[in-house]
Design a protein around this nucleic acid. Structure first.
Length: 618
DNA sequence: TGAGTAGTCG
């Protein structure tokens, strides 16, 4: 009944319904309360929501607080914290995770306001709210997830100084963050420290280490560690195998990958969809579809592989049906604007106007966190663009099998550059009425359109994403920035950056690299350099792509000395150059040669029937 | 607290 009421928008009827239920002696059960609260908060009926909350008891405070912070209703969220605090005074007891400070910090982190969370923490610390073990854990894990490794290590230091003993899980989070921030040396030191302090390493620890070594160009070390652990028969699980299978696929060693999957089976580990996805993509990249059947023979246990093959056959049959829209996919993603309208979506002008209206608030000298009060009072201030949440796992959502498979095959078609086949797949899913597509799906499509320069269609994908209530994440914004850069609007790209940093949002290494590239290509070299340094001072080490980008944009701008400086810096940082570095260096050599002997080159260029590969904008 | 399918450099 409530579901229907909520769906039809008759929210106003809710109080009557609740009271008639009470008259009939029927109590609100937890599921009903959840549905109700969700709808009420969504439609901004906070008073009604609070009424329902009081009816339904303590157990739902958590989800209500999260929902409120997500909707920027910080004042209300805070008042609930204080209610909880009062309740704890009366009973004399309250669960640690309910400490208002921890809840506040945690919720700020969940919605991606890492900077705000750090400030609130600092304030709580000095105002007599002693941080406990979970405060430290929440903060450190939040920093790790947003790649603020300097902050993470600083808080870790404070934690140890104050006598709190870190456990395996905390070390694992730190190791994972450190490796994802491309800090291999620091990660090794951290692992040593962990061992010295007698904190036991677990399966997770080794998986993080092996994966991190692979990601940081230390594949040999990763394999060595894996084979050593496997031989000892310790600390390996299905995920360890999955990580190594993926690396073998990346290196094109399909035979080894399939062998390892076989061994995985004989050891009794189940081969899941993540592993199968890695293999399928690997097979495709090597053009070896025949391996699909082999895989079938190798993996006998379970029904996952037969399912995958049946799915594949079904989709391939559907793809053979005549295409509705021929090769024109524009009608599929009708766009109401262009990428250049993106700033109105980001909404900075509107927000600026609104923040001006905010009346100054009285500072409460007794407040434990004036900053939090201030945040609460600015509940109409712009929200962060995206949260820390990333893609979900397969095991957790067995019902997402189709969508996960679709994403895998979508990437295979898009990799071939076959946009029309990818669109057809998308269309099939629309016809099936599958609307709960993940951000992966939309991001993949959008990125392909951006790569081809179809910005309007890309914008259409973004609109459809919004219509289907699929939240934009860091990758979505990365694609948008890439698009804006390609359209020659690095100014807008840098406005998005401003928005991201002033909101206390977070940037990962790919986002930094994309922005540096967009700024560099737009001849805003000072800003690009500034961002490169900003990244380092925030605790993320530049990777091979960052260095390549800096070398490239500087050499294109004729700043060869600077370009060499970054090459030197890269080698000093023990970051291995790749084939892209080679291509860029070739360009520099040609350019130098051209400068020294421009007359000769001039003759060369004017020679008839000569493909001029040296033609640049310079 | 860990793995895959989307996003960065040529």
């Amino acid at each position: 009944m409530f579901r229907t009421v909520c769906r039809t928008g008759l929210i106003g009827e809710v109080p009557d319904l609740v009271s008639s239920m009470k008259e009939d002696g029927v109590n609100l059960d937890q599921t009903t309360s959840k549905v109700l609260l969700d709808s009420l908060i969504r439609s901004g009926k906070f008073d009604l929501a609070l009424g329902v909350l009081e009816e339904s008891g303590d157990c739902l405070y958590d989800s209500v607080v999260i929902a409120l912070v997500k909707r920027n209703e910080l004042r209300l969220a805070l008042s609930i914290f204080f209610k909880l605090l009062e309740a704890s005074d009366n009973n004399g007891e309250v669960s640690v995770s309910y400490l208002p400070g921890n809840v506040a910090v945690n919720e700020l982190l969940v919605v991606g306001r890492v900077k705000d969370a750090l400030i609130v923490w600092d304030e709580l610390k000095v105002s007599g709210h002693e941080p406990d073990n979970s405060t430290y854990r929440i903060l450190i894990q939040g920093c790790c997830k947003s790649y603020r490794m300097d902050d993470a290590m600083r808080i870790f230091g404070v934690m140890q100084y104050n006598g709190f003993v870190p456990d395996t899980i905390l070390y694992n989070s730190l190791l994972d963050g450190t490796l994802k921030a491309r800090k291999v040396t620091e990660a090794c030191q951290l692992f040593e420290k962990m061992v010295q302090e007698g904190v036991r390493a677990s399966c997770w620890t080794y998986n993080i280490l092996i994966d991190g070594l692979f990601r940081n160009g230390r594949a040999e070390a990763g394999f060595t560690l894996f084979f050593y652990l496997k031989k000892k028969g310790q600390f390996v699980d299905a995920i360890t195998f999955s990580i190594v299978v993926l690396q073998l696929c990346r290196e094109g060693k399909l035979e080894g990958a399939v062998k390892l999957v076989e061994e995985m089976e004989t050891r009794g580990f189940s081969v899941d969809l993540v592993t199968i996805s890695s293999l399928l993509v690997g097979f495709h990249k090597q053009g070896r579809w025949d391996w699909k059947e082999k895989l079938m023979k190798h993996v006998r246990e379970g029904n996952l592989v037969p399912n995958v093959l049946r799915w594949n056959a079904g989709v391939e049959a559907s793809l053979k049906r005549p295409q509705n829209k021929d090769k024109d996919y524009t009608p599929m993603f009708p766009s109401k604007g262009s990428f250049l309208d993106i700033m109105s979506m980001v909404g900075s002008e509107e927000d600026e106007a609104r923040t001006e209206e905010v009346t100054p608030i009285e500072v409460d000298p007794w407040s434990s966190s004036p900053y939090m009060d201030q945040l609460a009072d600015q509940s109409n201030r712009p929200k962060p663009l995206f949260s820390l949440a990333r893609g979900q796992r397969v095991e957790a959502k067995p019902e997402s099998f189709d969508v996960d498979m679709m994403n895998t095959f979508l990437s295979i078609y898009l990799c071939k550059g076959d946009l029309s086949l990818a669109c057809k797949l998308f269309e099939i899913f629309n016809e099936m009425g599958v609307t709960d597509l993940t951000s992966y799906t939309y991001n993949s499509m959008m990125s392909s359109f951006v790569k081809k320069g179809y910005f309007k269609t890309a914008r259409g994908v973004l609109d459809q994403m919004g219509e289907n209530f699929c939240e934009a994440d860091i990758v979505t914004y990365n694609v948008i920035i890439q698009g804006l850069g390609k359209m020659g609007r690095a100014d807008l790209a840098s406005a998005v950056l401003d928005r991201l940093t002033t909101q206390g949002g977070y940037l990962d290494i790919v986002m930094y690299n994309t922005l540096i590239n967009a700024l560099g290509k737009a001849n805003r070299l000072d800003e690009a350099t500034q961002l490169f340094n900003h990244m380092k001072s925030n605790g993320i080490n530049p990777d091979v792509v960052s260095y390549n980008t800096m070398i490239e944009v500087n050499s294109k701008a004729g700043r060869l000395k600077e370009a060499y400086k970054y090459l030197r810096m890269m080698l000093d940082a023990n970051c291995l150059p790749n084939h892209v570095t080679d291509t860029i260096l070739d360009y520099i050599l040609v350019k130098r040669w051209r400068n020294q002997d421009s007359k000769k080159l001039h003759l060369y260029e004017n020679k008839p029937n000569c493909n001029n590969n040296f033609n640049t904008d310079q």
